[in-house]
Amino acid sequence: MKPPAFGYAAPRSVEEALAVLADLGHDGKVLAGGQSLIPLLSMRLTAPHTLVDINRIPGLADVTVAEDGSVIVGALVRHAELLAHAQAFEALPLLRRATSNVAHATVRNRGTTCGSVAHADPSGEMTAILAITGGSVQIAAAGRRTRDVGAREFFLGPLESCLGPGELAVSVRFGAPAPRSGSAFLELARRQGDYAMCGVAVTVTLDDSAEVTTVRAAYLSVGPVPDVHDLTAPVAGQRYSTADWRAAGELAASLVEPEGDLHASADYRRRLVSVLTERALPLAAADAVARTQVAA
């Protein structure tokens, strides 16, 4: 488990990085926290010609809460930093709720949130969060204006994003929560910190009289890309405290097409989709009430 020889570049600015990446084309590979890439190299599952280490580039390590309440996370922000970021949590509590489930402290200290998204693992927490918050990825390339790509277009398949050769994700933007909405995140992993057998991020929006207007959910480990499902129908107009969350969970189970693996059969995953959804939704509704002071 030793990687074959590879070239190494350590650019000191985004411009330099983009120039190096453009030069290398298909031969270049961005190295951020290395928590996914280095194991792949060591197992010789990938053998890039040159690693472009972005860790020495200044200005990529900021978490910014924009005026509209969205949270912008630079390419070098580690999971641990996002987890500890008070304003980000206040603006978008889902971020911390999900990030605390990413791996273990040692991995979170090195791995980047942006790298997680770039890695496009449908079992990763941040892919689902990007999807459900209607977020986007800011992609730069030499000689081009930075483009902003929404989650739907960004994730193409398992471990496959729209990032092309020469491109660098400079940040990801997680969208602001809707007014009168609340969120919850639940997952079940075989062991704490493992990739989840199934996980769910939900948002529930209420109207002024605490009745449900919108229910949305995005899942981990149940499909090739983090689809966002609308689960409003079975609970629309119901009061948050007595809504038929079970029906919403059952609807979710009918919408997903999970696959089985060593740790969880497809049927069991479907069961988890329904149970976790049913459990997460009342939490999200309560969160909506608590955060937005809708008349409870």
């Binding site: 075989r190 057998m197 059969s265 069991y268």
Partner: peptide
């Protein structure tokens, strides 16, 4: 027994 097997047993 993991949870997936327990689910199978229950069913």
């Amino acid at each position: 027994l993991g949870p997936s097997q327990i689910y199978d047993l229950i069913r």
